[in-house]
Design a protein around this nucleic acid. Structure first.
Lengths: 197, 197
DNA sequence: TGATCTTTAGAACCATCATTCTAAAATGGC
DNA sequence: GCCATTTTAGAATGATGGTTCTAAAGATCA
């Protein structure tokens, strides 16, 4: 009964995520969510609370999926760290460009209106996890001498996050995955070919 | 008379730009624009056409201001190209972080709903100009041997645009200008310290 | 089957918004 | 000062949206 309800809820979140990812919080009406999920309107309200809570649940679901894909790739001991980072971007770029929806976190952060504190809070939590994963990968890269040992790991991790944000915007303006991958490749080359300052 | 009307129009655009930049197209009502500009509602419609046209005019005004600041800095013959690029980012970051509004072009591109073709078209035009300016600066940097001559100028120009987009998103999530500048500085260092592959 | 509890579909409520209409006020030329 | 034109403030229009209410339908279990 409760398990069944949870299943229904996560299915509804999956469907609503698709809508919110593509068109954002403002542009998707509850009516559309009701139609797309098959959930009863009143049941949606009792299950989630309101539109905002549904949106936050979809944002969580979006992140958890990407988190598991990213961390699996970055933690793979059989892949060189820089190549693992490259693959993370490759996956993200293919997804963002193919769908033209960009990155749901970027879209949520840049949404119209004053920033929603709950959205920002979640994004901060997500970013901290991703940042740690980049830092670990970059430390391994330094240990293997794939990259210069004088480079600031923290700064490079921040660079990767900024790149991912920027690529999310590029995807929204309709950039091709080739255009986007060339940015990533050139950054990784710079990192791999950096000499002592 | 017509000159006076034009003056009034550009003053109204300035005021409306402030609103749209901070809160986006959707979240600002015509009523607010009327109150903030002092324009009569009906007069606004006869002068511009509608809300969308007012927004597009503010987006143009936003870009033209930044364009002139960027190009002036990038074309300054007394400044080393990489330093000029760094100053462009410094200006943009201070503005975006201080105001917390991010980049109006990014916000417009990632806005809720299906992307507005007229917005995308304008953003593409703006980007092409900025891209050219970066490319010229990078060519001068190569000519002065500030950067490695084997580096792809086009890829680096694309990288700078992506960085600027990403920083716009960072600003919306409340990042500090220090955090944002460190990303720029580390990228420029990578570029300056790149050896032959 | 029948009584109780849950779920549902749709109406109702209240608010907001872009845009247009209208009648009053202001302006300008003579 | 007076008439023609422009400008204005506010109401009207038509539409949408989030949320809640309600009465009917359905499920549960004895």
């Amino acid at each position: 009964m409760s398990a069944r309800l949870q299943t229904d809820k996560s299915q509804a979140v999956e469907v609503a995520k698709e809508l919110f990812w593509r068109r954002g919080f403002e542009d998707v009406s509850i009516e559309e969510v009701v139609k797309a999920t098959g959930f009863n309107r009143y049941a949606l309200y009792t299950a989630f609370g309101g539109k905002r809570e549904i949106f936050l649940a979809t944002l969580d679901a979006y992140y958890q999926e990407r988190r598991s894909i990213f961390l699996t790739s970055l933690d793979d001991p059989d892949t060189a760290p820089l190549e693992a980072i490259r693959r993370v971007f490759e996956f993200a770029i293919n997804e963002m460009a193919e769908r033209g929806t960009g990155c749901m976190m970027c879209n949520a952060a840049t949404a119209a209106g004053d920033p929603d504190p709950l959205v920002i809070e979640r994004v901060e939590t997500y970013l901290e996890e991703i940042r740690s994963a980049y830092i670990e990968a970059l430390q391994r890269a330094q240990a293997r001498e794939e990259i210069n040992t004088t480079i600031s790991i923290e700064a490079e991790a921040a660079l990767f996050i900024t790149l991912m944000f920027g690529l999310g915007v590029h995807a929204r303006r309709g950039a091709s995955s080739q255009e986007m991958m060339s940015v990533v490749d050139s950054t990784i080359s710079l990192l791999a070919n950096s000499r002592q300052p």
